[in-house]
Every structure is written in structure tokens, then in C-alpha cells.
């Protein structure tokens, strides 16, 4: 079955001016991600993978080139349209978890639904369901500070899932976790992939990348290799 790509990037460039110098963080990237892709973006620091991640996640816009996400040209959107896309199309999982520390898991997970305008009862139902999916159904009233690193990351994954996003974007999701916990988290991603989610990971750990089905390597703002495995 022919599937249209979820993400299409053509000649994507992101340049920063640092004083007199121009830093070419991304310098002509062409990429496509299909539905149910499970890909890892790898590369040494300074290769542009964070910049690429920010652009894919609509936190940043490219200097030039096109970025089509689900048929919408993101490169031309304004701040509020980008916010809407982040809310509906993208589920973020961060290395540093990025939960709000003072509110409990349920409230953290339902936060994207608040911005989506979902009513309280449905929010609570869906947040509870998402927490169940990551195996934290019994921790919904705990605050992030009362959980272990692996549990916190699972809460973050639940939050990323809550709005049924087109892609789950994980930036070094195991970077702050020990090996055993990292494996748990990657199992969750693999399960989500089997369930049909599109997942893009950013990592510099080879053994983490091995969980995925596709490895994209960046160097100096360009794609060095793009292999299925």
C-alpha cells in the first residue's frame, strides 16, 4: 500500500548569525518520514541534530527550504499556528523529561488537552488511559518529584501520546537513565511503534538506535547516511 509521507523536507537550511559569522546548523537537508516510521537521528554534537529536532517539532522554523507536516507547510506558519501544530501533531519526549514539577502526573499528562480545549471529564479519562498504557495507572496522583527517573519518563511519554499526535519526537529520551531503565523505555517506544505510531528518536547511543528500524546520520548539517535496518 502506498502511503503518503507524514513529513517531507526539501533543501532545508537553518543558519544562525553569530556576530559576523554565519553558523550553518542545517545546510540542505532532504528527508521523508512515512507513517509508522521508527527512526533514529544520530550524529556527533554540532552535527545539527538538535536543530533538526527543533524544526521537526515546530519549535523553530527553517531559514529556507520546505517542511511539509501532514500536508501543511510549516515553514510559513506564524507562532500561534505552530503552537497549534505542536499541540495536535507532535508529542515531545525530552531528555530532561520537562514535566511541571508541582502538579501531579494526571495534571501533567492532561496539559496538552487543556490547550486543545478538551473538557475536564474527557481530559481526565484520556490522561488516565494514557498513564495506564505506560504502566503508571497506580501513580496518577503522584507528583513527578515522587517518582523515579524511569517513571517520570513514562509520564512524559503518556503526555506525548495523549493527543494522538502524528509523530512522537523523542530527544535523547534515555540520556538521563541507567541501562536497565533505558531498555524499559525503549521497549515502550517499540510497543508504540508496533501499535502504529510514527516515532523519531534523537540519540548518540548506538545501542539505543538499534531498537529502531531506520538510522539517519548527520554531519555538519547534512545527511551523511540514511539506512533501513
Amino acid at each position: 500500500m502506498e502511503t503518503s509521507p507524514v513529513i517531507t523536507m526539501r533543501d532545508l537550511k537553518r543558519h544562525y548569525s553569530m556576530g559576523e559569522e554565519t553558523v550553518k546548523a542545517l545546510d540542505g537537508v532532504d528527508l521523508e518520514f512515512l507513517k509508522n516510521d521508527y527512526a533514529a537521528i544520530m550524529g556527533p554534537s554540532g552535527s545539527g541534530k538538535s536543530t533538526l529536532m527543533n524544526i521537526i517539532g515546530c519549535l523553530d522554523t527553517p531559514t529556507s527550504g520546505t517542511y511539509i507536516l501532514n500536508g501543511q507547510n510549516v515553514a510559513e506558519m506564524d507562532d500561534d499556528e505552530l503552537a497549534r501544530v505542536r499541540n495536535r501533531e507532535i508529542g515531545f519526549v525530552f531528555q530532561t523529561f520537562n514535566l511541571l514539577p508541582r502538579i501531579n502526573c494526571l495534571r501533567n499528562v492532561e496539559l496538552p488537552l487543556i490547550y486543545a480545549g478538551v473538557n475536564p471529564r474527557e481530559r481526565e479519562e484520556r490522561a488516565t488511559e494514557a498513564l495506564n498504557r505506560v504502566g503508571l495507572g497506580d501513580r496518577i496522583t503522584h507528583k513527578p518529584t515522587e517518582l523515579s527517573g524511569g517513571q517520570i519518563q513514562r509520564v512524559a511519554i503518556a503526555r506525548a501520546l495523549i493527543n494522538n499526535p502524528s509523530i512522537i519526537l523523542a530527544d535523547e529520551p534515555t540520556g538521563n537513565l541507567d541501562t536497565a531503565t533505558s531498555q524499559d523505555i525503549m521497549e515502550i517506544f517499540s510497543d508504540l511503534s508496533k501499535a502504529g505510531n510514527t516515532i523519531i528518536l534523537i540519540t548518540h547511543e548506538e545501542d539505543i538506535a538499534l531498537y529502531t528500524r531506520r538510522i539517519i546520520r548527520l554531519r555538519d548539517g547534512r545527511i551523511e547516511s540514511d539506512k533501513k535496518q
Binding site: L59, D79, A83, R86, F92
Partner: peptide, 12 residues
């Protein structure tokens, strides 16, 4: 930053 990353618009 977190709120914005999960889709909070400017005016909220």
C-alpha cells in the same frame, strides 16, 4: 518553554 512545546498559544 514546556507549555509552549505542548502547544500553549501566546495569548494563553
Amino acid at each position: 518553554g514546556i507549555r509552549k512545546s505542548i502547544g500553549a498559544p501566546q495569548n494563553s
